[in-house]
């Protein structure tokens, strides 16, 4: 398979481009989409299919639902995950409901694309890692790519999926570069990937915390601790089987999550592993998450509430050194 190097965000747009070329039902709309005759998407696919919108999130997402009901496959670029909250009903109580409540008579294939985790001084209202609040919503799928290749493959799969998909790309990864397969590239939903094998402890991380977990694993390897790093890639559906199988090999689980700890991806995974893999655990499960607070503007406070490599390393050491008392 031939590849080329591109950025994480470039890979996302490449997938949208390929899918729009492949299927004329794929539409693109949003506040920062098109709007100029020299926009490459407008030039390639025309202003009918590539439309800039006013600041009207409820209409943008609701229109995507309606266009999907009428046979199209819209992609809404919502820019930032928090802007979805302005249209919360449309995100969690409209498009995702229609297939089920119609008894399967209608489908709502649409993608909501949004950046998240703008932890670079964007303060309280633009920095949240709010994916946890969407992962328990039946009918909605949630993808959290951590590499350019996955960004491309998950976006392509999202567009071809017959359900509403929330595709969340991490702001801090935007310009990360990586090898991306040429042409058609699909990453299936609900299939975690083992980013690094290891026998001593299982580390699960998503999005921006994947490179953090890999860095921690490299640090730990120097001390002879081999961490297995798993990236679920989608959190709805969530591949708990791969995590459980890994825990059965390692006996230890450390969960890394940028989101606040309460009701997080890590909390869900901890519960699943505790219920189905209790017998395999040789130490308590430890979660390394954002602290339960909003993101403060000032840099020292922003850094304080976020997980980092040192926190991950320390958590792994505590788990590995666990001797029957508290971690």
């Amino acid at each position: 398979m031939s590849t080329h190097e591109t950025t994480y965000i470039g890979a996302v747009m490449e997938a949208i481009d390929l899918e729009m070329a492949r299927d004329e039902r794929v539409l693109l709309l949003g506040q920062s989409v098109g709007g100029r005759p020299d926009d490459p998407f407008v030039q390639r696919y025309g202003e009918n299919r590539v439309r800039v919108t006013p600041i009207s999130e409820t209409a943008e997402i609701g229109m995507a639902v309606g266009a999907a009901l009428a046979g199209m496959r819209p992609v809404v670029d919502a820019t930032m995950a928090e802007f979805l909250l302005v249209a919360m009903d449309q995100v969690v109580n409209e498009g995702n409901r229609f297939h089920h409540m119609s008894g399967g008579r209608v489908r709502v294939p649409m993608v909501l694309k949004a950046g998240y985790g703008f932890t670079a001084g964007w303060a309280g209202q633009h920095t949240g890692s709010i994916y946890g609040m969407f992962m328990g919503v039946p009918g909605l799928k949630v993808a959290l790519p951590s590499t350019p290749a996955d960004a491309k493959g998950l976006m392509a799969s999202a567009i071809r999926d017959d359900n509403p998909v929330l595709f969340l790309h991490h702001y801090l990864l935007t310009l990360d570069r990586g090898e991306v397969p040429d042409g058609e590239h699909l990453v299936p939903f609900g299939q975690a990937v083992i980013r690094r094998p290891g026998a001593d402890v299982t580390l699960v991380a998503t999005g921006w915390t994947v490179p953090m977990a890999l860095a921690a694993a490299a640090t730990l390897a120097a001390d002879g601790i081999e961490a297995e790093v798993i990236d679920p890639r989608t959190i709805a559906p969530l591949d708990t089987a791969t995590v459980l199988a890994s825990v059965r090999r390692t006996g230890r689980l450390v969960l890394v999550d940028q989101a606040t700890r309460h009701a997080s991806v890590s909390a869900v995974l901890a519960a699943e592993v505790a219920e189905a893999g209790f017998d395999a655990l040789r130490a308590p499960i430890v979660q390394v998450t954002g602290l339960d607070a909003g993101i403060a503007y000032s840099r020292p406070m922003e850094e304080h509430v976020l997980p980092d490599e040192a926190k991950v390393v320390a958590a792994v050491r505590r788990v590995v050194e666990y001797s029957g008392t508290r971690v």
């Binding site: 539409l27 009918n48 439309r51 409820t58 209409a59 943008e60 997402i61 609701g62 229109m63 995507a64 639902v65 309606g66 266009a67 999907a68 009901l69 009428a70 046979g71 199209m72 819209p74 009903d89 449309q90 109580n93 409209e94 229609f98 119609s102 209608v106």
Partner: peptide
């Protein structure tokens, strides 16, 4: 095409279906 049980929320659905028709 269907209904929304939430007041007003079907209006963008009709609008989006009209976009598809256009």
């Amino acid at each position: 095409l269907g209904t929304s049980g939430i007041v007003g929320q079907g209006i963008p659905h009709a609008t989006g279906a009209a976009w598809a028709a256009q």
